[in-house]
Design a protein around this nucleic acid. Structure first.
Lengths: 189, 189
DNA sequence: CAAAAAGATTGACAATAGTCAATAAATCAC
DNA sequence: GTGATTTATTGACTATTGTCAATCTTTTTG
């Protein structure tokens, strides 16, 4: 099992050697290039991704080519185009790796297998889901209660790595504002 | 067990009589008046609410008294001030019942009990969580990609009961816009 | 039912953010 | 390293939305 994954599971699961082997076999390693597309909008997201190195960007594109970033997933975290993955419907979002990345890939069927076979896996998965859901609730709150400057400040406090590692354009469409507005916010304070 | 709750669990769980009794005992009935506050901002949300009749509103207030609606929960659905409930931290949001309501109330401890004791309960709970999470992702998408008119149209398509049952003011702050803007949207088309 | 409270609409103006365009800076790929 | 491409910044203008205030309408409650 990849040490990064092992660490991720560490204090959440106690595993027998066989169970550990089963998990290791379900997660397949994949390396991606900068800006490689993993899931094309319109296709079904069939995998969950654990990010060992690099990051993933789940993003939307409209008819005019405008992009909006729905989620960013960094080292040690899991994610995918979640609605498509769960509902098995064509994804509204695409997934790309803005940086060259190393991923551990889990198929839907293997996720189900682990949920069924590994004691405690479903509880761990459910707990992780609760935290992701909380993060998305907090993002909704920032979108409905704050102006763009306040949202930028919050982002800088809570997820500075997004601002540091990713181009302005992606930070802007993650915040739901134009890149010009972001550029002006940064210079103003 | 309340028939509404029974129906909610129906095709998701097969229950023995004892398990059914256990669930029924964990959910306590509560009636509320119009605009009654169930959870005060700053306190900890200690319960999950199943709405039998009426509805719940999870909302934020700022220092100037402005309100924003984070979630609305109608008949047959469950909810609470989720981050506070899970993290056991003081809630940023308050909960009120905009209409006189009948609720079934589940404490955190009883939720844990049911997760542990009832076979299939955690899977059912997890699946519900996935769907709630998906709904919140879609709300984020509408907030970062659409203007207020498009968001209003989507709301009318997907949750017309919100527009029909609740005052303009609440609809507006659920959409993240001012009531005046909403009023103008409605007259324009 | 009537008075009071709450909610909805409209107008005038201000502020925020978006768009288009030009330029500058940084980064990539060979 | 250097040209090419992408990204970032800045200016001028526009569009959208918010705020404040006044009025009108609906709903609530005694």
């Amino acid at each position: 099992m990849h040490p990064a994954l092992k660490q991720h599971l560490e204090d959440k699961l106690i595993l027998s050697p066989e169970h550990e082997r089963l998990i290791a076999n379900c997660f397949k390693t994949r390396f991606t290039k900068r800006n490689e597309i993993l899931v094309e909008k319109g296709s079904i997201a069939k995998h969950l991704y654990f990010v060992v190195k690099g990051c993933l960007r789940v993003f939307l594109t409209d008819d005019e080519g405008n992009e909006s970033t729905r989620f960013l997933i960094f080292e040690g975290r899991m994610g995918t185009a979640f609605p498509s993955f769960i509902l098995k419907e064509p994804s509204v979002a695409s997934i790309q790796s803005p940086e060259p990345s190393e991923l551990l890939v889990l198929s839907y069927a293997d996720r189900d297998l682990l949920l069924k076979e590994i004691p405690g896996f479903e509880t761990m998965y459910r707990t992780g889901l609760e935290l992701d859901y909380i993060a998305s609730i907090q993002r909704i709150e920032s979108l409905i209660t704050m102006d763009s400057k306040a949202r930028y400040n919050i982002l800088m406090q809570t997820q500075p790595e997004i601002i540091k590692r990713l181009p302005n354009k992606i930070v802007a469409d993650y915040l739901g504002i134009s890149q010009e507005t972001l550029s002006r916010l940064k210079s103003k304070k």
